[in-house]
């Protein structure tokens, strides 16, 4: 007598290989979730803006989304690896499983769902970042960033200051207008979670709001020739008072 689908499923989960592999899978998924919670943030520099904070959160959540995939793949791989055949002659033939319709469907649906979660989450983040940028635009401080082979400089039109250091007051929305004097560069103030290419004759916009005091490393993330590696400078997020003092020291005006 053929077993009912319910009995089939119960029998399936009574098999030794299924039990071991499932246990392995759950354990590895859990491990990935735990490690994923701190792994990236451990290495990434201190976030000085909400954009960088949301990138940190995104790295964690994407690791969690991938955890079941990681668990499944590693569990099956490990189980079959430890179940391997040793010797110089081929092993006995295994079961002639050509395909399993339900498994293929299940796999496709689950992986599509995980993908969908990632896509939707990414789109929401993208959308909220754009919304924030639009809301901030009217009262943003403008910083014109110019990439030159192999030096950055920054012009603050409202303050009439040009410098080689990126100084930003805390909690002030800032709009970067990025341009290149020559080849392509990529403006990367690391701790702000912002990156945008500098192109000749095309202004690229990027925006952020620094919300924590600290030092900023500004790097170039696009190979730009001889001294690409040295196309770096520093900057800082300072208090409004410190920023104003700095502007005055640079001969600018703090309207």
């Amino acid at each position: 007598m053929a077993p009912t689908p319910g009995e089939k499923l119960t029998n399936f989960f009574k098999r030794r290989d299924v039990i071991i592999a499932s246990a392995l899978g759950v354990a590895i998924t859990a491990l990935t979730v735990i490690i994923g919670g701190w792994w990236y943030t451990k290495w990434m520099p201190t976030a000085l803006s909400t954009d960088m904070k949301s990138i940190e959160r995104l790295m964690v959540i994407f690791t969690w989304i991938s955890a079941p995939v990681c668990g499944t793949v590693v569990a099956i791989t490990l189980y079959t690896f430890f179940n391997r055949h040793k010797g110089d002659t081929p092993p006995e033939d295994g079961p002639a499983i050509r395909t399993r319709g339900p498994i293929v469907i299940l796999w496709s649906v689950v992986s599509s769902m995980l993908c969908l979660v990632a896509v939707v989450y990414g789109l929401i983040e993208l959308n909220s970042a754009e919304g924030k940028a639009q809301a901030d635009a009217p009262h943003a401080m403008i910083v014109e960033v110019t990439g030159n082979q192999w030096v950055w400089n920054f012009h603050y039109p409202a303050q009439d200051v040009t410098t080689d250091k990126l100084m930003l007051p805390i909690n002030q929305p800032v709009e970067f207008r990025i341009i290149s004097a020559d080849v392509n560069h990529s403006f990367w103030p690391v701790q702000l979670g912002v990156k945008a290419d500098a192109n000749r004759y095309q202004v690229t916009l990027a925006d952020t709001t620094p919300n924590k005091l600290g030092t900023i490393d500004v790097k170039c993330a696009e190979l730009c020739g001889l001294y690409h590696a040295y196309m770096e400078t520093t900057g800082a997020v300072t208090t409004r008072a410190d920023f104003n003092n700095w502007v005055t020291a640079q001969g600018g005006h703090t309207a």
């Binding site: 994407f62 983040e125 970042a129 990529s186 990156k195 993330a221």
Partner: peptide
């Protein structure tokens, strides 16, 4: 690759 395909995360990871 999943992190890199995501635009906000790529703000940090691109070119690194």
């Amino acid at each position: 690759g999943l992190y890199l395909s995501d635009v906000p995360a790529d703000n940090y990871l691109h070119g690194s």
